[in-house]
Nucleic acid binder design. Structure first.
Lengths: 161, 161
DNA sequence: TGAATATATTTTAAGTTTGAAATTTTAGGC
DNA sequence: GCCTAAAATTTCAAACTTAAAATATATTCA
């Protein structure tokens, strides 16, 4: 049997509001734990991790604008983060042959190594935080989120910078 | 039948990592839309809305520290937000009889009215964003999130300020 | 060609958020 | 009553984020 937590009298909009607040609470709680772990155990931040993660996914490098688009943050934002990663020898900027305006941001070998170490811990943190979820739970939530995400991606381009 | 999106070979930790990234993407997308709507249609911000929402839920007022605990933001943060709401006549600070250290933050009638207007729109925005979710989806996700949230609330107190 | 427009990025200014220090007040032990 | 510790809040400095302006390069097309 299915446990029905939403009253039949309640308008659907109220149920949707409540599930959104619950979803937000869960996401914020997990994110806060990740930030804490990155700071306390590795002396870094989530924005830095996100940038390194994006660069690791594209070994040939990413243009600064592609990077900010991919991460959905402002252009000026990634400039500062890549600056610092570069200072620390974790990233570098490579000129694009045909275009003097653009630069490709890349991880250095040292940066890639550092990211892989972080990513390994990150996966473990998430694995513990989602301890209670079996494959069935994951599949159910994944299918539900797909509905919301597909619905949402229509409007995506309206708000791109 | 159930559509199984996670491969049987894949370690559970990888599946959990992927569902976390998907969850985060959905939550960030929805939150971005709410921020946009609050800014463009009502000239306000999500932190302000969150503070007003918390104060509306506690008509007798909230101590500043209770407010920051409830919202899981820093102490100094709510000071600034309540300051501005107060300047605009939407909130006020009431002295606590027995304790000269503490103050209760409260919504003014004007503030409550403004919040109820915002809350009405907010519910509609969420209702549209979660358009694809029927009661069954909501119940499934709610049950899954309960597992994660209960697991998580144990550690909550460790990190309270 | 060269003028106008578009693209890629950085710089800048303003606003947020945080954690920690500082301030003020309260409570408890002796 | 006094002294120390705890509690409530604010102030402060640093980091982050954004939107917009500035800079430099590329492309279009008359």
């Amino acid at each position: 049997m299915t446990l029905e937590t939403t009253s039949k009298q309640e308008p659907l909009s109220k149920a949707r509001l409540r599930i959104w607040l619950k979803l937000l609470k869960a996401a914020n709680g997990i994110e806060a734990e990740i930030r804490r772990n990155l700071r306390d155990q590795h002396g870094t931040t989530l924005p830095r991790f996100d940038v390194m993660s994006a660069l690791a996914r594209f070994p040939d490098g990413l243009k600064m604008s592609d990077l900010s688009n991919f991460l959905k943050v402002s252009n000026g934002n990634v400039t500062g983060i890549v600056d610092k990663l570069t200072e620390e020898g974790l990233a570098l900027r490579v000129a694009v042959p045909g275009d003097k305006r653009a630069q490709l941001a890349q991880l250095t070998p040292k940066g890639l190594l550092a990211f892989e170490e972080l990513a390994h811990h990150h996966e473990n943190w998430i694995n513990k935080l989602l301890d209670g979820w079996a494959v069935e739970d994951i599949d159910a939530v994944s299918a539900a989120l797909d509905v919301v995400l597909s619905h949402h991606s229509d409007k995506e381009s309206d708000h791109a910078q």
